[in-house]
Nucleic acid binder design. Structure first.
Lengths: 329, 329
DNA sequence: TTGTATGCGTTATCAG
DNA sequence: CTGATAACGCATACAA
């Protein structure tokens, strides 16, 4: 492996000079700069990131903290797009990411988790799908030990940013469209789990909309699962003329139930997963661009790592009706 | 951050002694060992992996090289399960993984890719979905610069192992079952892309089966896409009494085409993706345990990194008919 | 503008 | 069995 020492010798300068060139220090003459760069190119030298991080105490290592929740392809699809977006942007920002699943941190204390990440030289963490019950992660966020970006949760402080779509508005948008198209008057809303932050926001949205439009609203608590949505639909849907679901998977479950019951009710979902193109053709849904959200998260993390303060970043969403023709390649 | 120095001071021993305890060196008395471990526990000391790897030239860093191919959730699902399996096993083996997509390496030479990985302290690489055309990766495999595990490709040498199911046998198994159930006599086989190694193996399987059973076989070259499978089916299916597809996605495409054509033909797929539970209910398919395959790959990589030689590891598969009831949670 | 020297947290090689 | 001490590859304060 060619090291900075080799470059220095070959270029006839000191190691520190090479280092300065590589790190774009101001006080280097153009002559030596190009002399060094020539050697760098010729030797194909790439700085050893491990040594650099040990020396500078800065690293470009960030962790993606994912929830490997449901064994449904919906979860897989979303997680994968998160990872793809993050990895892609990381490369552009010269960061490297390691992937961690919350399940692996299950029986660790906040201190242990912190030590673990520190021992790996990780300086930034992106948390996907934080719930109110993840006390260890909350502790870590508050500790300020890392620069953090939280997706879809309103955690913002000096070292923490929040990234995600406007769930309240998105829920309004998709429900409004569906209600308008069907002139619905009585909405059955199947929410997500209570522990999710987005659950509250989406609920706020539907409540606000129904209040404004003088629409009757009944809220049933689902858990983002098809099964539960199916049960709720079977039990209650008859009395309503529209079923608004807080996730696509639940929308699919509700739709299946309606088909079984042999009644029609408009249904709308939330997320825009590809499965909707296969089995949810008639449904409106909120399209979240998970790749972009993750890219934004990395940009934001990069900002934080440069010493800037936490803030809230809102990513745009859209309302779509996913068609089979759109998703096949 | 508590360092080995703190531990040494606190325990009243030399740094090198602490290091020896931590790395299970033989020549340490039980007395000092427990004395040191007490302090380690009390201080919650976790060795700095960055420093350790710089010093020892060994690291526990491995890269997952994934193909972010189709924007279908089938690909996402499989990739995600690969990642999940790898990350999970990595934690158990005290390795840490970084995720890389081939698209990011596109216009790099083998040397550049090698430098990149070396600069990151990566010692092992798992390649998912290698094709015959990935010349850069082939070059890296042959260079022996890294310990490598290749999924679903017959690359084995001193530093390279191959992990995957027996695609030939799996294709035989699923086709045989489907053919037997329907007493088919004329099979239309829609293969994968020619550049894929598994394509050949699966093709061998179906040819062997049809030859043995005296079944007429026509092979059409698909590309793992629904669209292509649909076209092929529309054009040729009428003349055959069974459609065997080299992937679930193609099977779904074929099935859609058959429904459009309003004729029935038994169809079978390959992979066992969850989507089959939604839209491919009537179809047999090969269930690959992608999580397990990836876990095996990590085990294998760990073996290689301990200096053992490359070999071929075959993971079991099964034939299933995916039902909606099985996949909803 | 350039070079020297020190340190980052470990591991590893020797003496003792 | 234990303890100095020299690497590891690089960044950086400081000296020249």
């Amino acid at each position: 492996m060619v090291s900075i020492k080799d470059v220095a010798r070959e270029a006839g300068v000191a190691i520190s000079t090479v280092s300065k060139v590589l790190n774009n220090y101001p006080n280097v003459s153009e002559a030596t700069r190009s002399k060094v760069m020539d050697v760098v190119d010729r030797l194909g030298f790439v700085p050893n990131a491990v040594a650099a991080s040990l020396s500078s105490k800065r690293t470009g290592r960030v962790a993606l903290l994912l929830k490997l929740n449901l064994r449904t392809q919906a979860g897989d699809e979303i997680n994968m797009q998160y990872i793809a977006g993050a990895v892609h942007r990381a490369k552009e920002l010269s960061l490297d990411v390691i992937t961690v699943f919350t399940s692996m941190l299950e029986d660790m204390t906040a201190d242990e988790v912190t030590s673990y990440f520190e021992s790996q030289g990780i300086k930034g963490i992106i948390v996907y799908g934080l719930t109110k019950k993840d006390s260890v992660i909350h502790e870590i966020i508050e500790s300020g030990a890392f620069k953090m970006v939280v997706i879809d949760a309103p955690m913002v402080n000096c070292t923490t940013s929040s990234v995600g779509i406007d769930h309240r508005q998105a829920q309004i948008d998709v429900a409004q469209k569906t209600i308008a198209e069907n002139k619905s008057k009585k909405v059955l809303y199947i929410s997500g789990e209570k522990i999710g932050y987005v659950t509250d926001e989406r609920l706020d949205g539907i409540e606000e909309l129904c209040a404004e439009k003088k629409i009757k609203l009944s809220v049933k608590c689902g858990d983002f699962s098809e099964l539960k949505a199916r049960e709720i639909t079977q039990k209650f849907a008859k009395r309503y003329d529209c079923v608004v679901c807080a996730s696509d998977l639940m929308a699919i479950g509700a739709m299946k139930a309606l088909i079984d019951m042999d009644i029609f009710r408009p249904v709308c979902g939330f997320d825009g997963i590809i499965l909707m193109g296969y089995v949810g053709k008639q449904m409106n849904t909120v399209k979240q661009d998970f790749v972009k959200i993750s890219e934004e998260a990395l940009d934001e993390l990069s900002r934080l790592m440069q010493g800037e303060e936490g803030r809230t970043v809102t990513v745009p969403h859209s309302i779509v009706r996913m068609e089979y023709e759109d998703i096949i390649v």
